[in-house]
């Protein structure tokens, strides 16, 4: 199964956010989208999962969905998007309630993702009783319960502190080692992208175009800072140049 992005562009009225995006998300890979603020990363993610209609181009799913898929394109949101009136268990159940699953099957699916994300002891807790990291774990558990073909993560760690971010990245690494889920991971953090992704797509400043696609050919277990230093330096220079140019353009527009 592959996701093919073919000439996608998007504009919000007169503001062109994305232009001419050609890309494929390969089966089982983790693809990171990175770029300066406002480059259209989240817009592209919205288009990939069908939450936004592209102004130009299309996104195609090529090949068969993995067996048992309930919700092919499933998001993990930056702000967690948990229903505050539902418990952890009921928030996860939301992803399953409209599917024709038996009570036992639904229960088993919830138990499985609760165990996988270390939330089994918090199933009856309300979101307000959880830390930010725990809330995002609920978001991940809910997404996994929907048995996605492609997991679409929209800056899932950016609302969290550095320590929690690190712990959740370990969770993601463990998860991807256990389950081969195709994922598109939007982030503005280059360290996250290099630590987690198989390929990194660097978008230019607005309108977002693909500036560079880089394969991270260091095995995930061996991605130390030293091993990634060269790649980090090169990508950082690209992103910094784009961000600086974007700032200059904004200043010139304002003048």
């Amino acid at each position: 199964m592959e996701l093919v992005v073919d000439g996608v562009g998007h504009a919000y009225d007169d503001l062109v956010a994305l232009d001419g995006i050609d890309l494929e998300v390969r089966d089982g890979e983790i693809l990171a989208l990175i770029g300066p603020s406002g480059c259209g990363k989240s817009t592209l993610l919205g288009i990939l999962g069908g939450l936004l209609r592209p102004t130009r181009g299309e996104v195609r799913l090529v090949g068969a969905l993995p067996p048992g898929t309930l919700n092919p394109f499933t998001y993990v949101f930056q702000d967690f998007a948990l229903l505050p009136w539902r418990t952890v268990e009921a928030n996860i159940a939301l992803a399953l309630e409209h599917h024709s699953l038996g009570a036992a099957e639904r229960r088993a699916a919830i138990d499985e993702v609760l165990a996988l994300t270390g939330l089994a002891d918090f199933r009856a807790a309300l979101p307000k009783q959880l830390s930010g990291g725990m809330r995002q774990r609920v978001g991940v558990a809910r997404a996994l319960a929907a048995r996605p073909a492609v997991l679409l993560l929209d800056e899932p760690l950016s609302a969290l502190d550095a320590q929690t971010r690190d712990l959740l990245m370990e969770d993601f690494e463990r998860l991807w080692a256990q389950r081969r889920i195709t994922a598109v991971y939007v982030t503005h953090n280059l360290d996250e992208a290099l630590r987690l992704a198989d390929r990194v797509v660097v978008l230019s400043r607005r309108p977002g175009r693909i500036r560079e696609i880089v394969t991270v050919d260091v095995p995930r277990g061996a991605r130390s800072m030293a091993a990634l230093a060269g790649l980090h330096e090169r990508l950082w220079r690209t992103i910094r140049d784009e961000a600086a140019s974007a700032d200059r353009e904004i200043a010139a527009d304002a003048a």
Binding site: N71, F77, A81, L83, W85, L94, E97, H98, R142
Partner: peptide, 24 residues
């Protein structure tokens, strides 16, 4: 964001009103 979340999980519109909009 809650409505978009419910849409992203494929909830039918009536379910979105009943499970998200009404309690919210």
């Amino acid at each position: 964001s809650l409505i978009r979340m419910a849409q992203s999980f494929g909830l039918p519109p009536f379910d979105i009103v009943r499970k998200v909009v009404l309690p919210g």
